[in-house]
Design a binder for these strands. Structure first.
Lengths: 132, 132
DNA sequence: CTTGACCCTGACATGATGTCAAGGTTGATG
DNA sequence: CATCAACCTTGACATCATGTCAGGGTCAAG
């Protein structure tokens, strides 16, 4: 299967397929006589694995770890679960941080009349010294 | 005030102070005879404005808009509020996306025994084709 | 043989930030 | 005065995941 087809069936751009190969997430595929990459069904499955993990917000580095565990028949499920739960916590922390920003911003905006006058507590709030 | 002092009092790294100058968020400061940057209290206030806006997750581009409104005595508070609320919505969308990832991941992890055996629904789940 | 749809590599860009290198300045101490 | 530490300067490279473009090769259908 050519790279274009692999891209279509996995939803991973050709650019990123080549990138995953360069950084070692994907093994170098077979090449046809003309130099074109030729992907096996196993490679396509691996691409799908990567795509799914990306959709769950794993970094390429974390995905490398997951792929290592996937390839390792001696792995224990607890190793995998540890990685997954650590990432879930990370996601939770990040979501909470965004939510906190949103609340702080809405609080600032609450006092703003939003009319034609120039007075604006949002701007003056931003200009104030604030505890970091 | 030298850049080091400005950095300490605002919490903005020297690197970023220079960067904000380069991209036009900060006006070029006065220079002493030796070439050192010399910051006025107004400049320091502007730096603090930027720092606070960054803490609320505004991009430098959005901050440029906010600074433009800050500088403009003819602005209406509704212009400011529009920018702020749009950003708040953006924050909400991003937080929700992270939260959705977290839930999906926890759902996957739920079926994982987390013991010494190699069977792991997390890995097999990641390998499956999934609706994008 | 031409055209369009593929494929190849390599390079540059994004955004916000860190870090390092190589050098000038200043103030204090020996 | 020499030196040393603590400043300051600019410029360049690195990060992370991804897009895009340039310049070229390949292939199949008309």
């Amino acid at each position: 299967m050519n790279i274009g087809q692999a891209s279509k069936t996995t939803g991973v751009s050709e650019r990123m397929i080549r990138h995953y190969e360069r950084v070692g997430l994907m093994p170098p595929p077979d090449r046809r006589d003309n130099g074109y990459r030729d992907y096996s069904p196993q490679s396509v499955e691996r691409l799908r694995f990567i795509a799914n993990a990306r959709d769950l917000g794993f970094s390429l580095e974390e995905i490398a770890t997951l792929l290592g565990l996937w390839d390792d028949r001696e792995r224990t499920s607890s190793e995998v679960k540890t990685v997954a739960l650590a990432h879930a916590e990370d996601l939770g922390r990040k979501a909470a941080a965004l939510e906190a920003m949103r609340c702080a911003l809405l609080e600032l905006a609450e006092g703003c009349s939003g009319d034609n006058r120039p007075d604006c507590p949002i701007l003056s709030g931003l200009a104030e010294r604030r505890a970091r």
